[in-house]
């Protein structure tokens, strides 16, 4: 069995984003790039599954659509423990473009289980995983908080409104993961970092695909009005404000 983990490369979540060129482009100066938090957890879970020989997983590959500049993020995934990596050499222009590229990789590599994150913290698209599954005509399970392999079958826990459901689908399948898939992201150890340098990182050229959407401008959020402070000895005043001023309770 083979697992593919799709990883996106995003600014560290504490980044104060700024835009340049008339609010058309992200200012990348000083940005720390990291593996999208969900993808780090997917990778962790994929490696946990591989660690148990009874699951019969031979290979965990990571795939990324991005330029040369994102290779440090891919190397980090290799250092954490992925066996090999594929980089599709293109600027990820939109989710449709990215998913189409990944679909080709999945088909050619014959992966049984594909992990995507529920959203990447840059464009907050929540899109690539579902699109990828549809390009491949594979089943997909979303809002996934657990993946187990039992008797050669994949059992997936997914969140539903007000609870959880354990489901199974025939493989190959795309699992779109969220909180719970793994506890803590696995950290690269020194040995892993050394080994990552020699692990295969294959670069492939993209398919020509037109994007369906395009960001034309960015805006900063509206500044909030200053906070109104209430006397700590008299919280009743807060209740009055919520009732009479905000008219919310």
């Amino acid at each position: 069995m083979k697992i593919l983990v799709c990883i996106s490369n995003v600014p560290d979540t504490t980044t104060k984003v700024k835009f340049i060129e008339g609010n058309k482009k992200l200012d990348v100066t000083g940005i720390q790039w990291v593996i999208n938090p969900w993808d780090e957890l997917s990778l962790t879970r994929a490696l946990e599954l591989k660690d148990d020989p009874s699951n019969g997983i031979q290979l965990v590959t990571v795939a990324h659509v991005g330029p040369l500049a994102s290779e440090p993020t891919i190397r980090k995934a290799l250092a954490i423990g992925a066996d090999d990596a594929i980089r599709i050499n293109a600027d990820p222009s939109d989710a449709y473009f990215v998913a189409a590229q990944l679909a080709k990789i999945v088909k050619e590599g014959v992966y049984d289980l594909v992990f995507c994150g529920i959203e990447s913290s840059d464009f907050n698209g929540s899109t690539v995983g579902g699109m990828l599954a549809e390009f491949l005509e594979y089943p997909s399970v979303s809002s996934v908080s657990g993946v187990k392999i039992e008797n050669g079958q994949v059992n997936i826990t997914r969140e539903i409104d007000g609870g959880k459901e354990i489901v199974t689908v025939p493989m190959p399948v795309v699992a779109i993961v969220q909180k719970g898939i793994a506890k803590e992201p696995r950290i690269a150890a020194m040995r892993g970092i050394m080994m990552a340098r020699t692990k295969p990182l294959n670069v492939v050229e993209p398919l020509a695909i037109d994007s369906l959407t395009e960001v034309v401008a960015y805006e900063m959020p509206q500044p909030r009005a200053a906070c109104k402070f209430v006397d700590p000895e008299n919280p009743r005043q807060l209740v009055e404000l919520l009732q009479n001023e905000a008219k919310i309770i």
Binding site: P11, T13, T15, K16, V17, F19, S121, D122, F123, N124, S211, L212, T213, E214, V215, V216, A217, Y218, E219, M220, P221
Partner: peptide, 16 residues
């Protein structure tokens, strides 16, 4: 008009 960068900014996105 949609949120990007986890709510630290918003984008104007054209659907073509």
């Amino acid at each position: 008009y949609k949120k990007v960068y986890s709510g630290n900014a918003f984008s104007n996105l054209v659907i073509k």
